[in-house]
Amino acid sequence: MLKRRVIPCLDIKNGRVVKGVHFANLRDTGDPVEAARAYDTQGADELCLLDITATTEGRDTFVDVVRRVAGQIFTPLTVGGGVRREADVRRLLAAGADKVAVNSAAVANPLLIRQLADRYGSQCIVVAVDVRQLKPLPGETEPLYEVVIHGGTRSTGLEALSWCEQAAALGAGEILLTSMDKDGTRDGYDLAITRAVSKRVPIPVIASGGVGSLEHLRQGLDPKEGAADAALAASIFHFGLYTIAQAKHYLAEHGIPVRPHEAPRGVLITG
């Protein structure tokens, strides 16, 4: 049976791990290689690195981070942030990434998804979708969501569900769905859009944005709530609030099928 995944995410700026609230107010929380190794040992099902630097030097530093992290872990590594063209994907895969997430560039040119999937296989192309709920108009009963790009600063006019469907049809292997309204708030995922996308698209969906507790992870993965295939979180793990092992344990106790935590023999994992 396929298990639900718990994916810690590291936001990387200039080679260091940072975590912001609403993608702003960044603060430095440490060395990515050290963090990645810790998560791998704690039993993370996968690891995600997002590059949030804007400069060319930052980009080169990021590729170096990917290379160093890939050399330390034996779980899948998804990377994203600033991926514009096929050459970026090639560079990240060559550095040891297993999957590459594209976001704004796919919105600008949806056929990029097909081009990348044809070349590298759907299993390694993730389409990252940042969404924001639109203020309901009088008479609208269902909430509507819009796709935003450039870290949530720019509207696209795309409706979230149809964009996710289109991305899947073009060959995306997974959707990484982030709620901009929830990101950094620690009030939990936006379950409505997570469930809607997860039920609509035929490919796995990773819930992202807003986790502040283990219960939020459970909600994201519960088939009747978020219905996501994987739960991504950053700050609850970074700030040492919980370990991955604790998260797995909590989920298993609450009926979510997860891969049991397997500690390396002879090494005591505390917490």
């Binding site: 396929l2 099902d45 299993q123 997974e174 796995p204 295939d229 891969r259």
Partner: peptide, 21 residues
Amino acid sequence: KIPHMGWSDVQPTGEHFYFAH
């Protein structure tokens, strides 16, 4: 969902492995 992506157990050992296919 397709691909079958993530950790599944195998029988008879019950161990978990990462699949993406």
